[in-house]
Amino acid sequence: MQQANEFFTMGGYGGYVWPAFGVTALIMIWLLAASLRRLRENENLLKQMQATTPRRQAGRAGAEGRAS
């Protein structure tokens, strides 16, 4: 308990050391999460588009076929 306490107070500098490590961890994790989320969003969009475009193109070909 005593040791843990010593660890967290950092010899009186705990108020500076922990925020420094905290803000670093926070920003690095946030950046990673935001980048991964964007990648997943884009991947899903691409999947959706790949699923819908061929059908639409087939529909167009059919319409053109009827028109001619």
Binding site: M10, G12, G14, Y16, V17, A20, F21
Partner: peptide, 8 residues
């Protein structure tokens, strides 16, 4: 000199 603050 800088104590534990050097860990920053």
């Amino acid at each position: 000199q800088q104590g534990e603050s050097v860990r920053i």
